[in-house]
Each structure stands twice: as structure tokens, then as C-alpha cells.
Design a binder for these strands. Structure first.
Lengths: 129, 129, 129, 129
DNA sequence: GTGGTCTAGACCACG
DNA sequence: GTGGTCTAGACCACC
């Protein structure tokens, strides 16, 4: 796997795990229907607790990124990730708000901010790493 | 004060407080040199413990938003907030990354995302709420 | 632990704690990667409140002396303490200035002062106390 | 007067005042027998509270730097500042210790440290500002 | 009256 | 069991 964790970060490991897997999907390294390692094997691969991987998987399942079958294991949702809906849009706006408020305070212009976003977007639209 | 907290939120109160005050500065409701309520009065106003307010203030002080005088109380940094530097830019990019990864997965296009940002930006550039 | 506090001192306990731990690192009693007691166990060991220890640890973390892992506890920074930079030098000079001014007034010569410093330095370069 | 205060410093104003006056004596800007402004006039000159100046003066008096006559006002001790004694030496060593411990941790060598001290000493041995 | 420090005790997130 | 957060209430230094 391509998972890279920072065990010293203040960000909980299970959140980092979620982010890494979502990035993998965004970058098309993980395609709909692809299977993911089992909780057990992933946990041992990256050296974290079973519960931690489990928590990340559960959250990803609830958000529609993956399916967890008791026998077949874990797969990326074959039907793709649920599309953006209104509640997503609201949540996103709410989450971005503090970052933009800070940017305004620090004199970081709208153009610069958007440039930053575009650059990150471009990371995801290229193929491969 | 204009502070509005969601005590049910998973987001710690002191973080919400920071965000609210940063928004106040971004919206020019709070100008450089303006004084903020004392720890105790703000705490009693919004119905939280004095230490919670104190924690928010200390963090804001460290980030350069406010100054804390031992006796005179708390004021918005008269010299303005420190400008965006490289470490800020890096941190911002790192923070935005997961949101953009999720947006990509959900088919939320770059244009839509930027539109969302612009709308939030416009909130801060108008006067008043 | 080797921590020795003076509860009667005007110096806040959390500052004394910081100093003691920094001395421990300076004397190589604590090596990079060594783990420190948990907040709670140290607090109970030395008979102070958990928050007092926490405050000392947070400050030491911010100054780069230690790392705080959410679960694994507290360790001395495995990469060593950040080296002296210009801002450190300036701060040191600013802090020493009043002591030297007083020494000048009291007829304590430069040679005597330096001798005092050297003697303290020698405390840290030997092994053990 | 040559007093320069930083009202935003965490260091109490009365301590800053003491330091400035001690520096003045160390630099021979204030000579034994010279008179200092009254509490009232100094307070109004530098824009601080009467109590603050009073506290600084009282402490300076107790340390032997100045004399306070009810009528004649405040003068620099005509007999000079009490010479360094053992208790002074011990206190100095105790105060310097944390700075040296930090220096050791940061790889600031004894030579560099002494160089820093010498430079500060040289500030005081020149005449005038 | 202000912020700074300390105590005591509670609940939660994390692994 | 670990640190993170929050509350409640106390005393002190400062001005």
C-alpha cells in the first residue's frame, strides 16, 4: 500500500488513514471495485492497532467510499462515491470558512487562495503518482 | 459580542472561539487596536469556563492575532495579523488537501469548489454580516 | 525521576519542572528518544496537579525538547534539541543583560562572572551529578 | 530619563524599571549621590501607575542601589552598591544555571556563551550610550 | 479588576 | 492507560 502516516502528528491516525485512502481513490490509484487489504493485514503492514484501521474503515464505509463484506473483504465502492449533495456542500463551506477567514486576516488574496486550490486539484487530475 | 458557539459540536469550544474571533477580524468587526472582553467577562457572557476562554486567547496571542497585556486586558494586534509566509502557505495546502481529495471523489469539480471559496470570500469583503 | 521542586519558591512549579527536565537533557541523564513519565504518573510522583505537569510538557514540546504522542506518551526529541539560532542568541543576550548589569554594579568582574559560567558549564559536561 | 519600557512584555513593568535603573548605574549614567526623579514625576514621565514606580524604588532600596529620604527625595546610594557577597554569588549561579542548561542542549558552546557575556560586559564598560 | 498559576475532579478520544 | 478538553473554585501578582 501507499499509506504514509505521521505518528507524531496531532491528527489521529484513523483520520490520516481515511485521508490517505480517499486520496488514493481521488488519484485513481484505487478504482471502484478494487479490493483493499483486510483490517488485520493493513494494521500489521503499517504497524498500527487493529481498532485504528477498523475505525477508519467503518467511517469510510459510512461515507460511501468502501463496502465491507464479511467474506469478500473490503472493496472500493463499485458504484463510485456518492455524489456531492446539498448537505455535503454545506459541510464543505462550513469547514472551509475558518481557513478563508484566516487567509483574509493574513492578507492572502482570493486569487492566491484559488491558485492554491487549483494546484492541489491538479495533483489529483494527473494519472499515476 | 457576536460570538456564537455550538456546545454540541465535536469541535472544542476554544477552537470555535478562536474561529469566531478570527472571523470577526476578517470581517473588520474587530479592528487593530480594538479591545476584547476580559477572560472572565467573555466567559460569563457565553457561559463557559474562564479557562476555556483563556486557552483560546493564548492561542490567538501566539498566532499574532491579539496582544494580552497583564492589566489592560486583551486587544486586537494593532500592527495587524502577521502576513502569510511560506510556512503558512504550506500548512494551508496541507489542510486543504483532504477536502479537495474528497471533492474530487464526489465529482465536485474544480469550478464548483472555487465558486464555493469565492462565495465565502465575498462574505468577508462586505461590510457587516 | 530526579526532579526536585521547591514549592516555596516564587518561581512557578511548571517552570521549575521545565528547567529540571532541560537540565536532565543537558546532563545526558535523558537521551534523545528516552521516554518520560506520563503526565499523571509524574504528577503523582512529585505531588502536584496533573495540569501543572501538562503545562510544563506542552511548553517543552513547543520548544522542541520533547515530543508528545497521543498514546505512546512523552519522549525526548529523538532528533535532539533545535540548535541555537539567531533569535535564540538575541533572547539569551536580552536575558543575561540584567544579570550582568547587576554584576557590574556590585563590582563583580568579567573574569569572576565568566568563571562562574565556566563552573556551571562543567557541571553539565561531566557524567552524573 | 532614559527609561525605556515595553508595556507588552510579559515582564512586569516594575521589574523592567528596576533593570533600567540598574543599567543606568552600571553604565555610570547614574553616579553615586545622583538624584532620581520622585515617584510621582517619574510615574507621570513614563506614563505608569504610581504604585508601579514605588514598588520598583522600594525593591531597589532594599537591594542597596538607592536611598529614599522623605524630604530629599531619591538618590543613588552615595556609598555605591553593596559588593558581591557569597549569597549574591549563589543566587547568580542559581539564576544562570537554567540558561546554561538550555545553551548546552542547543549546542551553544562554552566559548560562544562566554563571548556573549563579554560582549554584554563591554556595553557597560564604555562611557556614554 | 486584570491575567497567571494551581488544584481537583470529570468525561472523552485514541490506540 | 494515554493525552485532550472542560468545569469549578482558589489565591496571587500586577496596576
Amino acid at each position: 500500500m501507499f499509506i504514509q502516516l505521521d505518528l507524531e502528528s496531532a491528527e489521529p491516525i484513523y483520520i490520516q488513514l481515511q485521508h490517505q485512502i480517499i486520496e488514493g481513490i481521488a488519484k485513481k490509484k484505487l478504482l471502484p471495485g478494487d479490493s483493499l487489504p483486510s483490517v488485520r493485514s493493513l494494521a500489521s503492514d503499517i504497524g498500527v492497532n487493529l481498532h485504528t484501521v477498523n475505525k477508519a474503515y467503518k467511517q469510510l464505509k459510512q461515507d460511501g467510499y468502501i463496502l465491507i463484506h464479511r467474506q469478500k473483504g473490503v472493496v472500493v465502492n463499485p458504484e463510485g462515491v456518492p455524489k456531492a449533495d446539498n448537505s455535503y456542500r454545506e459541510l464543505l463551506a462550513k469547514n472551509l470558512r475558518p481557513y478563508i477567514a484566516e487567509a483574509v486576516c493574513r492578507g492572502f488574496t482570493e486569487e492566491e487562495f484559488i491558485q492554491t486550490c487549483k494546484q492541489i486539484y491538479s495533483n489529483f487530475n494527473e494519472r499515476g503518482e
